[in-house]
Nucleic acid binder design. Structure first.
Length: 250
DNA sequence: CTTTCAGCCTGACGGC
DNA sequence: TGCCGTCAGGCTGAAA
């Protein structure tokens, strides 16, 4: 990496002002853990998060700086640029404290470690809503509001169901649907908002296939009952009251 | 300990 | 046409 340039340091936490220490060192590896990217340079590592609208783009170094390109790393004829319309993302020096946080994250959802038995054990002492639990990154990472909402619908589980009162067979269905929907979304290029673009500047199409998310008051695609919405853990949760009954067994 | 919630930011959308 | 308020998302630190 030859040099870097900051156009707008106002990302989450601010962009480190001493990126110069990376000059003339190699970007050796890129890792991902949960929703974090680790850009590993020869002697230092950057921990990055794309927030909800961020993306890294590779483009000719001569290309005009886009309105939302806040940072560029120059590799000769090519640039690696950080683009983020809403600036919810972050770029920080990786350190021990941040590593500690990564260590406390739950398993990756697409690995065998995330299983029905694991989830049952993780939820054993959780009497709060299942929706909040599967969005808790200490339990499982990578499940945001859209996918949590959709997976609960597909599993027929009301989002307010007490997490520790769900049968193992239902947890197995939920785990299966979480894995399936995440893989399907990846295959289709992701969902999120209209202004999202991937590294090739393409938008995601997955949102066109969403069943209940964002469809409050519209008919359920399965039974035509109007979709309802409630707020759980500060997030809107759409669900079908017919397909996802709230069980109140003692 | 657990759980909730404001705040960060901007674009899309609805109402006037 | 444009302005204005509201909402959405992931995460953190503070409060309950």
């Amino acid at each position: 990496m030859h040099h870097s340039q900051i156009f707008n340091p106002k990302l989450r936490y601010g962009v480190p002002s001493d990126l110069d220490r990376l000059n003339s060192t190699a970007l050796t590896q890129v890792h991902r853990r949960a929703k974090y990217l680790l850009l590993e340079f020869a002697e230092h590592t950057l921990l990055c998060h794309l927030g909800m609208s961020g993306s890294f783009v590779i483009c000719p170094a001569s290309a005009a700086i886009g309105k939302h390109q806040h940072l560029r790393f120059n590799f000769g004829e090519l640039d690696l640029r950080y683009n983020d319309p809403r600036r919810f993302g972050s770029v920080q020096w990786h350190n021990g404290k941040l590593q500690q946080r990564l260590d406390n994250l739950g398993p990756e959802p697409l690995t065998e470690a995330f299983s029905a038995h694991y989830l049952q054990a993780a939820l054993a002492r959780k009497g709060s809503a299942i929706k909040g639990a599967i969005m808790d990154q200490a339990i499982v990472v990578g499940v945001g509001n859209i996918y949590a909402t959709e997976a609960l619908f597909m599993a027929g589980i009301h989002p307010n169901t007490a997490a520790n009162r769900i049968a193992l067979s239902d947890l197995a269905a939920l785990v299966g649907h979480i894995k399936h929907i995440l893989q399907a979304a990846i295959n289709l290029g992701g969902s999120t908002l209209n202004d999202y673009v991937n590294g090739q500047g393409q938008t995601g199409y997955f949102q066109q296939t969403l069943l209940v998310y964002g469809r409050s008051k519209q008919p359920c695609p399965v039974c035509t009952t109007p979709i309802q919405a409630v707020t759980i853990a500060g997030r809107t949760s759409s669900f079908c009251p017919q397909c996802q009954p709230l069980l109140t067994l003692e």
